[in-house]
């Protein structure tokens, strides 16, 4: 990476949910703040800003990452996916999201964005997840409302649906 001056803003360009975006960022600007305040993509939530709660999880080149522990300038040239990119359209839900809704896998919904992003990546890697594997993945997130069980149930059901009918409106990776 080229040397960046702390005192100046730098143009950072990347792909956000399939669309090219760019913004001016000081090197210290967090990716979470760049998304929310710079680009108005407020689906990514900020719960702790020290990497524990997982609410701000995004995918960078398909890999889950904490936006609060990532600098905006690190997104340069990357493919970034956030919760806004999971559904096939603004008014449609992905299979996983629809299953969350059916199972009441969210109450306040604040942690949900990050959990969906993590699970979306995991289900692509492991289409046959066990409950234990899912508990470990969701263990990277804090949810204060649900007690987690409905989240695990929703994901098991979504995984089964995705396996049985690959043509379902899964969140196609971009």
């Amino acid at each position: 990476m080229s040397h960046l001056s702390a005192a100046t803003r730098h143009r950072v360009a990347f792909t956000l949910n399939g669309r090219p975006v760019s913004l001016e960022a000081e090197p210290r600007l967090l990716a979470s703040d760049a998304l929310r305040h710079g680009l108005g993509a407020t689906g990514t939530h900020v719960g702790c800003e020290h990497g524990v709660c997982g609410a701000c999880t995004i995918q960078i080149d398909g890999v889950p990452a904490r936006a609060c522990l990532t600098l905006a300038v690190q997104l340069e040239g990357r493919k970034v996916r956030t919760v806004e990119g999971l559904g096939p359209a603004a008014d449609r839900l992905s299979v996983l999201q629809a299953s969350f809704r059916r199972h009441h896998a969210l109450q306040c919904g604040f942690c949900t964005a990050g959990i969906l992003v993590s699970l979306d990546a995991f289900l692509h890697e492991q289409p046959h997840p066990s409950e234990e594997e899912l508990r470990i993945v969701v263990g990277g997130h804090l949810c204060r409302c649900t007690g987690y069980t409905p989240i695990i149930r929703a994901t098991l059901e979504a995984a089964e649906q995705l396996r049985s009918d690959p043509s379902l409106p899964d969140s196609s990776h971009v």
Binding site: H50, V52, L134, V138, G139, G140, H141, L142
Partner: peptide, 12 residues
């Protein structure tokens, strides 16, 4: 003052 000191239960 952090979630590494004030521990909340996770799914595990």
């Amino acid at each position: 003052g952090t979630f590494a000191d004030y521990l909340l239960p996770t799914s595990t």
